[in-house]
Amino acid sequence: MPIAREHELHHRRLGRNVGLAVSLGAFVLVVLAVSMVKMRTEIELLTGAGDRAPAVAEQDR
């Protein structure tokens, strides 16, 4: 039997699905942001770039 009209239950389910989608999306963004920061820190450490450069240069001298 096709759904003839919207029941309050459908709104509740929609809310649940949207809530879950937003939570998962936010989780992906957090993981992405953390990965980018970690990778940048690693690269800076390896290349001596960024703020660490003067300190590294001082040590080399």
Binding site: L9, R12, R13, G15, R16, V18, G19, L20
Partner: peptide, 10 residues
């Protein structure tokens, strides 16, 4: 399904 949880319940 009247008592089915909404997102707020979780």
């Amino acid at each position: 399904h009247e008592d089915e949880a909404g997102f707020g319940d979780y």
